[in-house]
Amino acid sequence: MAEQTAGLTSFIHLVETIADNKYVLGDRLVEVGVSGPNLEATLAAIAMAQGELGHARLLYNWSADLKGVKKADVKDQSGKALPNAVKVNNWITLIASLYATNAAIDLVLKAVSESEHAKVASRVQKLINEQKEHIIYARGWAKQLLNDKGAVPAKFKEALNEAIPEAGEWLKSVEAQTEIVEEGYMSKTVSLYEAFKAEVEQLTTPALVSTN
């Protein structure tokens, strides 16, 4: 195990935060996704749940390796997941949270994949490849819900207006932990928050969805 420097301590916290979010998304994709609007959506949600839970397993195991402790069974998240993801209780909030949370995580993991530590970078590449499909799915559903009829678009914008700022604040907090970049666990090629804003703006207009 490497010496527990400030950067490593913060990096372990970051890995566990992503693991917790993936654990929660996996759980919500099963609990809520099973009542998706159509069979295809439901089947995809359950398939993605397996993916998210697998990503959580990889990240929890990695955290144990970094801490030099024995891998233990994980029966619940450790409390670091975004509150918005935890309270997902219907299809609309599920899609909003799946999109915002994974889009934010994707930016962090891509920065990790450019780490100066080869072993760190190699851990996340497969995960990034798989996660891409989840983001495409969530983005596709988000566009569909934004262009739906009746009360759906307004309700979905409301859900996005909760999920996006929370994910944005998390990215700002990651950027504030400069020791992670200084010790080479993550590259500093682009502002995570600015990249997230750009991603969100592609989905909808800034006037409708707050990114602050």
Binding site: G51, L53, G54, H55, E130
Partner: peptide
Amino acid sequence: MTFTAVGCA
């Protein structure tokens, strides 16, 4: 070794 997917059950 590796697996086909991270989430392989």
